[in-house]
Structure formats: structure tokens, C-alpha cells
Design a binder for these strands. Sequence first.
DNA 1: AGTCGGATCCCCCGGAAGGGGCAGGAATTC
DNA 2: GAATTCCTGCCCCTTCCGGGGGATCCGACT
Lengths: 207, 207
Amino acid sequence: MPRDITCLIVDDHEVVREGLRLSLSRASHIRVVGEASDGASAVALTERRRPNVVIMDVRMPGMDGLQATREINEKVPETSVLLFTAHNERSLLGRGLEAGAKGYILKEAPHQTLLRAIEKVAEGEGYVDPALMPTFLNSRDKEDMLTAREREILQLLADGMSNVEVAGRLFISQETVKSHVRHILAKLEADTRTHAVAIALRESIID
Amino acid sequence: MPRDITCLIVDDHEVVREGLRLSLSRASHIRVVGEASDGASAVALTERRRPNVVIMDVRMPGMDGLQATREINEKVPETSVLLFTAHNERSLLGRGLEAGAKGYILKEAPHQTLLRAIEKVAEGEGYVDPALMPTFLNSRDKEDMLTAREREILQLLADGMSNVEVAGRLFISQETVKSHVRHILAKLEADTRTHAVAIALRESIID
DNA sequence: AGTCGGATCCCCCGGAAGGGGCAGGAATTC
DNA sequence: GAATTCCTGCCCCTTCCGGGGGATCCGACT
């Protein structure tokens, strides 16, 4: 390895940033070149410092980690984003990879695993926390099964809308909405819209 | 202040524990006497080390922070629990205080605030993150409005049960369930059960 | 003793939801 | 160009839900 891996820490919790800095300071070949506490400044800082790796929390106030990841990928493609999050929610991994993240690791991961992940993504390879594989396989089915339209409708159901209201909002017929809802229920293996919404909220398919 | 404040760190994320240890090592009058990564060992360690303060994360695998707080309060009442969490969800603060926590502070709080909070609860006083006050006032209404029975029913609705199914499960008549549901809808200002469940899940009134 | 909230149960009713099948058109893929 | 997927729409039918009245019982609080 010719030179140090430069990396940027992004997390809205100071205590996490400190912990990370401390952890990484023990690895001689890793150098922290900056910190940010929200998505927007993470993007800005990445453009200026051009680190090899951005260690990015997903949930943050303001611009979240996924959006920041997208922008970094677009503006500074040579930088790899490693998502670092406490949430092993089903959909986050999928959405993270879609956003262009090179790696995904849980905060509960042991120290060594984190270092390995950083090295991997710095080399341009992908890294996904092995602990995620089971939930991943279970769930991508679930989220991916739903079409964009179906997710859109599910989201409106979660706001308490009736079929007629959804139809009005989307400028389609009520019958079409019923049709979509039937498909949603079948795919999520729910038997009422209420159950479907509960599943979707728990799995973060919708917000 | 006669002697150092002894404190125990409880968090399932290693990176957070490291950050906390680092932060607290800078305060000369605070001494970290142990760490735990789940609720059960937190309780056990508290019984042995009897620290002044336990800095406790709420969400952890296995026994969660609230349950651990209850047990610590029962078994080692002279120890004060300071809840330290990333989630400013409406119901957590209320439930935390019910569980016997002396303080509640967010992970995004600045360094100084954390130290202040630790000192406060070490003296036996309460401390609640000022940032929480607004959400607190808004929300306790919502959760407290619901009776235990109503929450129980709402939880079952979130699993997709119909009125009849809920009635069967709780050994009550379907009419009673309908009655409860009507009250739930009125209290949460929802117009369908689906909306009520969505609200409750988002506000963590149910899981 | 009286009042209040909570839990339980009952009736009625209109409208909504759930379940089934079916089908055209557009876009994509092979 | 054939196949597939998705969005869209329509039919019929049964069940469930939401909203409106009520009522009774019990325990807790005052």
C-alpha cells in the first residue's frame, strides 16, 4: 500500500465521531482528514478534501446519508462511501447500495471488521457486513417486490387515506387503487391494509 | 465535591463506548468504572461496582435500556441512571422516567451538556435535555390519552387483526372492540384504524 | 354518597375494504 | 415480434369498518 488511506467521518453524534477518531488513530495507515455532522457539509468537505473513504452515518438531520452518498458519487466519484449505521433495517442496505455506497457496516461491528471494511472500500471493492446477509435475503424480496407505484400508494395509505382519497390524489380511478392495494397485500402477505402499513413502517419500506 | 463521580457506560456500540470513555477521560472528576454492551450485564455490573451514575443507551439487543433501568432502580437504588440515546421519540422520555431514570440526554447533545447532566444526576437531581421539552409537551398527551387496554388493542390492530380476531384474542365481544377502536380513533385524531396504527408506530406508542 | 373514567356490551346503518377474475395499452426485455 | 411487467380500469360479491345512538358494572377518587 503506497500511502495512507485518507478518510472523512460523518455522523451527527459527537460521541460517535470521537469514538471513531480514537479507533482509527490506532490504525497507522489510516488518516482522518475531516469530520462533518450533516449531509450537506459532508458533501462540501468531500469535494474539498477528496478523501479515499467517507464513513457515513445514514440517519442525520437535514440531508440524510443516502442523499449525501448520491451527491458524493456524482461529484467526487473517486471517493468511496462506507455506510456506517446502527440500523440494520431491511431496506436501508438496498437503498444505500442504490445510492452508490461501496460498503455497509453496522455500528455494532467489532473494531477489526470496521478496519477491514475501510480498507476494502478504499481499494474500490465492495464490503457488506456479513451480519446483514440474512436480513438482506429475507427482505429485498419484500421491498423489491413492490413497484414504485405500489410503494407510492402504500405511503398514502399510511397517512390514513381511503381508496377514494388516494385515487383523487393520484388522478386515477378508485378501481385502480383497489387493484394496487390487492397486489400490495398479496406481496407483503398481509390481509388488511393496516397490516401492510405496519409491516412497511417496521421494515422502513415507507416513512 | 468530596470524591470522583464513578460511572458505568452501557451501549451496544463499541464506537460509542470508546467515544464516551474518551470524552469522560477529559473530565478529571469523573471516573469510568466499567462498561457493558447489553442490559443484563449492565444490571449485573451495577450491582458489583455500584457506580454513582449509569450512562445507559435505550435501544439494545436483548434486555433494553428501560428494563435494565427498572432493575437497577430496584436493586441498586443509590445508583442514578442517565438515559443517553439518539432517539428523541415522543414516548421514550416518558417511559424512561417511569422506569426510574434520573436523567435523559440526547446523543447529539454537546459535550458540556453531557458533563452537566452526569454531575446533576450524580447529585441525585434530575436532568432532562432541554431540547426534548417541546416534543415532550406535545406528545405525552397523545400517549397518555390512551388507556392500557386501548394500547393493547392498538397493538393487535398493528398486527393486522380484524375486530373479530381481536375480540377472540382478548375474550371480549366484538362490540367492545369496536367501542375501543372508536375511542382510539378519536383520541389519536385518526379517521381509520390504518392511520391510527401509522401514527402509533411513528410515535413509538406501539412497536 | 356521589361522580367520574374505564371496560364491557348492544342496536342500526351506509359506505368502505377485501377478494376474485379479466383485459387493454405502454414500455421493456429477449 | 413475442413475451413480460406494470399501470390502468371494470365487473360482482361478501365482509368489515366507522359513526351514531345507547346501557351496565366496577373501582377510584373526593
